[in-house]
Nucleic acid binder design. Structure first.
Length: 271
DNA sequence: AGAGGTACCTGGCAGC
DNA sequence: TGCTGCCAGGTACCTC
C-alpha cells in the first residue's frame, strides 16, 4: 500500500486505540516477511505497555517499556484494528492482541513488509540511521535539495524517491509532485535551478499534506487503520492517467519508465 | 561515490 | 475458459 500518507493515516487511525494499552499476546502465523520475524518477538512484547506510536519515513514505531517494535508495510501491507474476533484470512500474518480484547491485525499478501525489534536508540537502528529528512519538516527545504543534487546525473524522479535523500516520497506522489512543480520527471537532478527546487519542495509538501488530509490514496488493497478507504485517488493529476487529457492544458498524459518504475507526466506542463 | 539492476512474494489482469 | 507473462504502492543490496 503504502506511501507516507497511508502510513501516517494508519498511525493516526490506530494510535488512540493502542497507546496506553498493554499487549496481551503476539500471534505470528507467518514469520517469513521481508526479513524473518524475530523468534523472541512474542516474549519481548508480552505484557508490555504501549507507550507511543511514531512514524519515521514509512516505518511505524511502537515503543513499549523494554524496546521498540519496528513495522514496515512494504508494498501491500495494512494494519487494521479489530474489535471482534474474526477468523484470519490467508494473508493475515500477525495479530497483536491487547488486554481490552481489541486486536491489531497485519495483512500483507506480498510479504514485503517487516516486523522487527530493537532495544537500542531507535535512530541508530541500521534501517533508520541513513534516512533523509522528513518531507514535512523544516529541514527539508530548497537549499537542502539543491545542494545535494549538484553533480547528480540521475533523473530527478529517482532522486526524490531515494529515501537517503528524503523519506516517504513513493512512486505515486513523486509523479504528482513533479507535475505540480512543472518539472519533467526524467530531467537530471543536477541540472535543475535552485528556484525550481523551491517549487518542488513546496509541491512535495503540499501533495503529501493533501493526501494525508484525504486519508491516503485508495489503490487496490489499502484500508485505513480503522477500516476506512482513502479518497486521494480522485485527486490524482497524472498517476495512472496515461492517454487521458491533462486537467490543466488538455495535452495527452504520457507514460514512460524511469528507474524501472511507471512514470506519468504532462508534456505540456512539465519541462 | 554514483548509477543501475536484482531480489523478495503474491494477486490481478491483459492477451492469446 | 484457461494458461502465460507482465505488472504492482518499497527498498536493501549487489555489481559496474
Amino acid at each position: 500500500m503504502p506511501e507516507l500518507p497511508e502510513v501516517e493515516t494508519t498511525r493516526r487511525g490506530i494510535a488512540p486505540h493502542v497507546c496506553g494499552r498493554h499487549v496481551k499476546q503476539l500471534l505470528v502465523r507467518q514469520r517469513q516477511l521481508r526479513w524473518p520475524v524475530p523468534g523472541q518477538l512474542e516474549q519481548f512484547l508480552a505484557g508490555q505497555r504501549i507507550e507511543r506510536i511514531d512514524r519515521r519515513g514509512k516505518y511505524l514505531l511502537l515503543t513499549v517499556g523494554r524496546g521498540t517494535l519496528i513495522i514496515h508495510l512494504g508494498m501491500s501491507g495494512s494494519l487494521r484494528l479489530l474489535t471482534t474476533d474474526s477468523p484470519p484470512g490467508p494473508h493475515d500474518h500477525i495479530d497483536l492482541l491487547l488486554e481490552d480484547g481489541c486486536r491489531l491485525r497485519y495483512t500483507d499478501p506480498r510479504r514485503f513488509g517487516a516486523w522487527l525489534w530493537t532495544d537500542g536508540a531507535i535512530e541508530q537502528h541500521a534501517l533508520l540511521q541513513k534516512l533523509g529528512p522528513e518531507p514535512l519538516s523544516a529541514a527539508f527545504d530548497a537549499d537542502y535539495l539543491y545542494s545535494l543534487s549538484r553533480g547528480r546525473k540521475l533523473a530527478v524522479k529517482s532522486f526524490i524517491m531515494n529515501s537517503h535523500v528524503v523519506v516517504g516520497v513513493g512512486n505515486i506522489y513523486a509523479n504528482e509532485a513533479l507535475f505540480r512543480a512543472g518539472i519533467h520527471p526524467a530531467r537530471a537532478a543536477g541540472r535543475i535551478a535552485r528556484q525550481r527546487y523551491q517549487g518542488l519542495v513546496e509541491a512535495i509538501k503540499s501533495v503529501l499534506d493533501d493526501a494525508i488530509r484525504e486519508g491516503g490514496t485508495t489503490l487496490r488493497d489499502f484500508v485505513g487503520g480503522e477500516g476506512k478507504p482513502g479518497y486521494f485517488k480522485q485527486r490524482l493529476q497524472v498517476y495512472d492517467r496515461r492517454d487521458a487529457p491533462c486537467r490543466c492544458c488538455a495535452s495527452t498524459i504520457r507514460e514512460t519508465r524511469i528507474g524501472q518504475r511507471s512514470s506519468f507526466f504532462c508534456p505540456g506542463c512539465q519541462r
